[in-house]
């Protein structure tokens, strides 16, 4: 939806590309790609999504208007196509996120950092520890009225799955073995919670020159060597090593 760049003087190719790479659609494409490739959940860009939603609405109105006023069918179908593609990106982005959240929901809920990457309202109304069920329900109800939270179904999903597991398995086991998170009461850590594998390899590309990346895999004596990244070159690298750089948006995953 590169609309603003089209009017005025004709920009040079470089300027045009620079403009293109900062449009919201391009940003979403980048976020979507990274989200698809990364093993763990990334930050949810609330502003970007709300901006896009507005633009999509605007676009829909334009298409509607043109189709009733009987404009050129070719340009109309181009608009429609553009709209469809953006919609696909947005849908796919949200889908990928939901699927990832579902897969690791228990892990995400118990890790503050990950939990904060979902959208804003959630952590207020699903308190992680303690808090009686009644409280949680009240909060949730209240929150569903007040917050415009975007992944708000996540905590409900956790509750539902937990209840499902409890009803079908855990309630039938001996009392020391009834936890969802732990194998038994003597486990010190939560050893029943599936976690994303951060040591998988990902394809990535840097936007700028980066140096001093500590590799976390390979033989031990190699790890002290620092790794450098040229801009625009493809690398196949262990996700753990570049995790902070992906989070800060310096590296795009492919």
């Amino acid at each position: 939806m590169a609309s603003s760049s089209m009017d005025g003087s004709i920009p040079t190719m470089d300027e045009f590309e620079a403009l293109l790479s900062t449009t919201d659609v391009e940003l979403l494409k980048r976020a979507w790609r990274s989200e698809k490739a990364s093993p763990e959940i990334l930050r949810y860009d609330t502003d970007l999504v709300s901006r896009l939603t507005e633009q999509i609405q605007l676009m829909e109105e334009t298409v509607e208007e043109k189709s009733t006023s009987g404009a050129d069918p070719l340009s109309l179908s181009l608009y429609q196509m553009d709209l469809d593609r953006t919609l696909f990106l947005l849908r796919s982005y949200l889908r990928v996120r939901i699927q990832k959240i579902e897969k690791y929901m228990f892990h995400i809920r118990k890790t503050d950092e990950l939990w904060n990457r979902l959208s804003k309202g959630e952590k207020d109304f699903t308190s992680r520890k303690g808090s009686s069920n009644l409280h949680a329900y009240a909060y949730r109800y209240y929150a569903s009225l007040v917050f415009e939270s975007n992944e708000f179904s996540c905590c409900r999903c956790i509750e539902d799955l937990k209840q499902h597991l409890e009803e079908s398995v855990l309630s039938k086991l001996p009392e020391n073995y009834q936890s969802v998170e732990k194998q038994s009461v003597i486990s010190e850590e939560d050893d029943m919670v599936p976690e994303p594998r951060l040591d998988t390899f990902v394809l990535c590309r840097s936007k700028e020159y980066l140096s001093g990346i500590q590799l976390e895999d390979g033989p031990v004596d190699d790890r002290s060597k620092l790794f450098e990244m040229e801009p625009g070159v493809l690398y196949f690298i262990c996700y753990k090593s570049i995790k902070p750089l992906v989070e800060s948006g310096k590296i795009d995953l492919l």
Binding site: T53, S77, Q80, D84, L87, F88, R91, S92, L94, N150
Partner: peptide, 16 residues
């Protein structure tokens, strides 16, 4: 809530 049906559009669209 999102005003978006996520279950459609499972493959990238080529033609409307």
């Amino acid at each position: 809530k999102m005003e978006l049906d996520l279950t459609v559009d499972m493959v990238p669209p080529k033609d409307p």
